[in-house]
């Protein structure tokens, strides 16, 4: 090995070490405030400052979660099923929303006439909470997955649609001109300019859409689920005054929502918009 290569690989090693260290440090920084909150909470309940049958201590919630995760327990052990059902509903609603909203968004963004006709309707539907449709859908489809997924779909579709339209409309005239003067046809313009130029706006629309799907899910499950789902679990637990189970459900909702953001969207952004900004370097330094 020449000295140059040796030096290079030492440098690389140092960078990788730094990256790992940096990552660990960030994780600790993130978890520390949460740990502090849990400690204060636990202390408050144990000191009798809060009534434990309304606000159970974190230790009680964890104990209940373990019970619920135990699949050999015939009475409980349903937590994983609830999570799986909820994830299936939210993700399929989101997938449908994306499949509908992105093509429709491009159509609306590209055609002035369609936009003039449809955009007032969208402005009206955008601020409407999707849950409001649930009773109507219950009448139409009854309880079950169809109603729940449709409500979540309605929650997710408008943010994605709206940001796709904004993204398409923000593409500058000049960037289309540049490729046209290279001899580009419509297909080239679409693939090489429109699609990538829309991506940053689309990305925030996708995040928002997924978040809306996840939020809408809980309410929809409370109203329309037959036997499973996290929303159902929380709602059903009220019949037994089972507050720890409700908390298990709430924690699951929060943590899963965060994990979706982290594992679905962060990698997607790193591969696209953040890379274009030049924000990504080996070692995670910015």
């Amino acid at each position: 090995m020449t000295p140059d290569v040796a030096e290079g690989s030492a440098l690389l090693k140092e960078r990788v070490t730094f990256a790992l260290f940096d990552r660990a440090a960030r994780t600790v920084k993130f978890l520390l405030p949460i740990a502090a909150l849990l400690l204060v909470w636990e202390g408050a309940v144990r000191a009798g400052l809060a009534e434990s049958n309304i606000l159970p201590a974190p230790s009680m919630v964890i104990a209940r979660a373990i019970e619920l995760l135990d699949v050999t327990n015939p009475a409980g052990g349903m937590l994983l099923t609830h999570i799986a059902t909820s994830l299936y509903r939210a993700l399929s609603a989101f997938a449908f929303a994306v499949l509908v909203a992105i093509p429709l968004g491009f159509l609306l963004g590209l055609s002035g006439t369609v936009y003039r006709w449809v955009s007032p309707v969208i402005s009206l539907l955008l601020p409407l909470p999707a849950v409001a449709w649930t009773p109507i859908l219950l009448v139409a489809f009854g309880q079950g997955d169809v109603t729940i997924i449709t409500v979540c779909f309605l929650g997710a579709v408008f943010p994605v649609l709206y940001s796709t339209i904004q993204g398409v409309r923000s593409v500058s005239r000049q960037s289309v001109w540049v490729v046209r003067s290279m001899g580009a046809n419509f297909g080239d313009i679409f693939v090489r300019v429109m699609l990538p130029a829309t991506l940053p706006a689309l990305m925030s629309g996708l995040k928002l859409g997924m978040a809306h799907a996840w939020r809408t899910l809980v309410a929809a499950e409370m109203l329309a689920a037959l036997s499973s789902g996290l929303g159902y679990m929380i709602f059903a637990a009220r019949s037994y005054m089972d507050v720890p189970t409700m908390f298990v459900g709430i924690v699951c909702l929060a943590v899963i929502g965060m994990l979706i953001e982290h594992f679905l969207f962060v990698p997607l952004e790193n591969a696209t918009t953040r890379k274009w900004e030049g924000a990504i370097h080996v070692g995670g330094r910015r």
Partner: peptide
Amino acid sequence: TRPGPDRGVVFQEFVLFPW
């Protein structure tokens, strides 16, 4: 009648493709 590759254009605002 329309743009074509016989004429290249450079704009004040560069108009590069960030991706």
